[in-house]
Design a protein around this nucleic acid. Sequence first.
DNA 1: CACATTAATCTAACACCGTTAGAGTGCCGT
DNA 2: ACGGCACTCTAACGGTGTTAGATTAATGTG
Lengths: 225, 225
Amino acid sequence: MALERDKVVAASLILLDEVGLDGLTMRALAKRLAVQAPTLYWHFPSKQALLDQMADAIIAPVPAAIPPGEPPDTVLRSLADAMRRALLSRRDGARVYAGTYVMGENVLAVADIALGALMQKGLDERGAADEMFNIVYYILGHAIEEQGFQERWVSADDGTVAGMRRLLAEPASRRFPSLSRCVDTILASDFDARFRRGVDSWLHGLERKEAAPRVRSARSASVKS
Amino acid sequence: MALERDKVVAASLILLDEVGLDGLTMRALAKRLAVQAPTLYWHFPSKQALLDQMADAIIAPVPAAIPPGEPPDTVLRSLADAMRRALLSRRDGARVYAGTYVMGENVLAVADIALGALMQKGLDERGAADEMFNIVYYILGHAIEEQGFQERWVSADDGTVAGMRRLLAEPASRRFPSLSRCVDTILASDFDARFRRGVDSWLHGLERKEAAPRVRSARSASVKS
DNA sequence: CACATTAATCTAACACCGTTAGAGTGCCGT
DNA sequence: ACGGCACTCTAACGGTGTTAGATTAATGTG
């Protein structure tokens, strides 16, 4: 019963790597499973339901990648790293995940780990929830843009970033001086290094939060006094 | 020549608000313009090209929303705010923007402003490029999830977040203790407040960067000595 | 004015998509 | 032996982005 479902999800992930999200059709998936397309609708009520399962499967390796018993900073760093790697591990993985918004088993597990580490650092419930979403948003946006960048520019017919340089360098030269100064740095962009620095910045910001517990707002304070 | 193109983009943005990205078809757009669908292909080589123009149009208001002559922190804060508002101003706006990766006029202008402010704060080219992308990733991820959350949960048949509470509270209670503690906070989530705090954290992290100029790596230092 | 050219739109159609209806097929418990 | 169930099939519907090629409207040129 649930065995067949898992096999379908596994096959769809392989197909995703081969043809991308736009090429992932029910008919193509059916052919790979030596089956007719409508058969899939006995196992999944819709394509979106299948995509939801795929999204959960994509981040399934994340909870297991977190070393237990480590200090919260280590947990958070490896959590961010594992989630990024999971999203990037499949072609269009970030786009699949972004389109889902479903409360899958693994999604909940990841959230639980992040919230636990954040509260262990001294944040209250709201602070932990905020920061947990913030880092997830960052990871997701980062991965979406990275994969989109690759598909659009690196694996384009051009084959290099030369086309991008042409588009960037010309109009920037006069009207956009700051951009013009940074254009070489941007073209040589290293997503991994940038991500690491981004996570560092985030963790550094957390230090401030845990050190200085939130003050009551002026209104409620005056009411109290 | 370019006049007709702009009219098509404007109409497509109105249609986007009405029917969402999934409902935005070339035939529906053509009907709104009192034209047959293939006519659009005289003005745009593909639907993706139209979406690219739409994405650039969505963030067109951003550069104008930046007060000139302000200190860089103010510039960056209002830039983040304006970009977020722009993405949220159209239905599925964030998803449209995320799928584009095009070097439009306004995209370049926004990048130029951000890079200028960051370098004015003392960051070098690479630091400015990194942080500019980081904040953009964050804004984008935030907006995508917020709009997706609304479409999937708030405007669902259920009409409220009750369905989400049901899905979250039950499985969380035993296996996910931290999540369980935060579930009420999460359900009462205020995206605006969270975004403001996220930008604050980011700006705070920048202070550290500008204060402490990067040290040479150990390897190159030892070579020097 | 007549005419060739160009811009813009049309109709018709292609190949494909997600999805549904409803008819089989094989197995399993009684 | 047989009813029911799990699973798969064929056929088709309405829709999609996109192309080919004919047709109209406008425009500059002799």
